[in-house]
Each structure stands twice: as C-alpha cells, then as structure tokens.
Simulated scan of single mutants.
Amino acid sequence: MSTTSTTSATTTADGAPVPPPIRWFGTTWVQRGTGYWLRRAAVSTGALAATAAGALLLRLGVSGVRMSEAGPLTMLLSLAVGLCSALAGLRNWKILTEGKDALTGWMAEEKQLAGVWLVGCTGALAAYFARSLVEAPGEGLKRAAYDQETAVWHRRRASRAEREARRGGRRRS
C-alpha cells in the first residue's frame, strides 16, 4: 500500500518550505490567483462531465441486462451499482478531506474491494466534483501542512536572528 505524504520535501535556498503541487493546479492554490480559479472551474466541469459519462455507461450496462429480460437480476444489479457508487463516493470524499492515511477498516482495502471501487466510479467522480466546488481537491490537507511548515520556518528564522543579534552585541563590547 503506497502512502502519499502531504508535507513538502523541498525547500528554497534560504530554507523556506516550498508548497507541494496539486494535480491540475500546481502551486497556484497557495496564492489563489486568476489561474487557480480558472483551473477550479475547468476541473469542476471536467469532473461533472466524467460523472455524467460514467453514469451513462452504467445505465447502458443495466439497460442491457434489462433487455435480456432477467427481471430480478436487473433490480439486484441496480441496487449493487447504487451501493458501490455510494461507498466509493464516501471513500473518495474521506480521502479528499482527511487524506489517504485516515482510511481505516473496509475503506482502506485497495485490492480486495477493487471491483467495488471500479463499479462505484460514478460516486467517486461525484464526490470529486462536489469537493472541487469547495476547494481544489486535496487543498485543505496540503494547505494545513504547508502553513504548519511555514510557521515552523518563521519561528526558527526569528530565533536564529535573535541569537545572532545577541552574539553580535557581545562581540562589539
């Protein structure tokens, strides 16, 4: 199981932390300029289009089973698709808001429940769309980590400057 770190591993020449990029947004999420808002609109539109395409594909699949006149199977398949979509959407929402490391229990199962996540792709895409209306998906986690790293860097820089000022004052005497 691969884990993704939300902290940045790189720093600038003076030791300041560099914000980690977010897919499709780069580091525009830090300043939230015009490019950020245009990308947010494009990502939301793309996620909505992908959700609609996934729903259409699932609808065509269920319609194919309905045409085969397998009555009870059609209802069972519709319920299974709905349940898988709900579970995948819930899981994706948790990943986007709390991070992949916060997944526990059945949500953390990647390989065993791969079929559920695949069938529930529409729910996962819908959760991505909904999250993209609030912020760049994953931005909250990255912003919290970046703000914490920046605060630590500022404290260290201030204490270093204070120590150097005290040493400079002693040397002048």
Rank of each mutant, 00 (worst) to 15 (best):
A52I: 10
R32H: 11
G46H: 01
E69R: 15
S68C: 14
L73M: 08
A80C: 06
V62W: 08
G46L: 07
L60K: 13
A50E: 01
V30W: 06
P17N: 09
L83K: 13
G61K: 09
R40Q: 07
R66P: 00
P17G: 10
R59G: 15
T28E: 06
A41H: 11
G64H: 07
G46F: 05
P19T: 03
V43S: 02
P17L: 09
W37F: 15
G64L: 07
T34A: 06
A47W: 04
V30F: 06
A13L: 14
W29R: 01
Q31H: 14
G54K: 12
G35R: 05
T51D: 00
E69G: 12
P19M: 07
S68F: 08
R59W: 15
G46V: 06
T28Y: 03
L77I: 10
M67E: 14
L77R: 05
G54Y: 09
L48F: 04
T45P: 00
P19D: 02
R40H: 05
T45W: 12
P17C: 11
A50I: 07
L56G: 09
A70K: 06
P72A: 15
L77H: 05
R39M: 11
F25G: 08
L83Y: 15
G71W: 13
L60W: 10
L56N: 09
A16M: 03
A52N: 03
M67V: 00
R23L: 15
D14N: 13
T74R: 00
V43F: 08
Q31C: 03
G33Q: 01
G61V: 08
L56K: 09
Y36W: 04
R39Q: 11
P17Y: 08
V18F: 00
G35W: 02
R23I: 15
V18H: 02
L38A: 13
A41W: 04
V18Y: 02
A41F: 13
A16I: 01
S63F: 07
L58S: 13
S78A: 15
Y36E: 03
V65H: 07
A47T: 07
S44C: 08
P72S: 15
A47Y: 02
G35P: 01
G26A: 06
M75Y: 14
P20M: 04
G15A: 04
G64E: 05
P20I: 06
R23N: 10
R66Y: 05
G46W: 02
Q31Y: 05
Y36H: 09
R39E: 02
T28A: 00
R66I: 00
A52Q: 06
Q31K: 14
R39S: 09
F25K: 01
P72D: 15
A70Q: 11
G82D: 04
L38E: 13
T12K: 10
G61N: 13
A55M: 11
A16S: 03
A55R: 10
A80R: 02
A50M: 13
R59M: 10
L60T: 09
L79S: 08
W29F: 02
T28D: 02
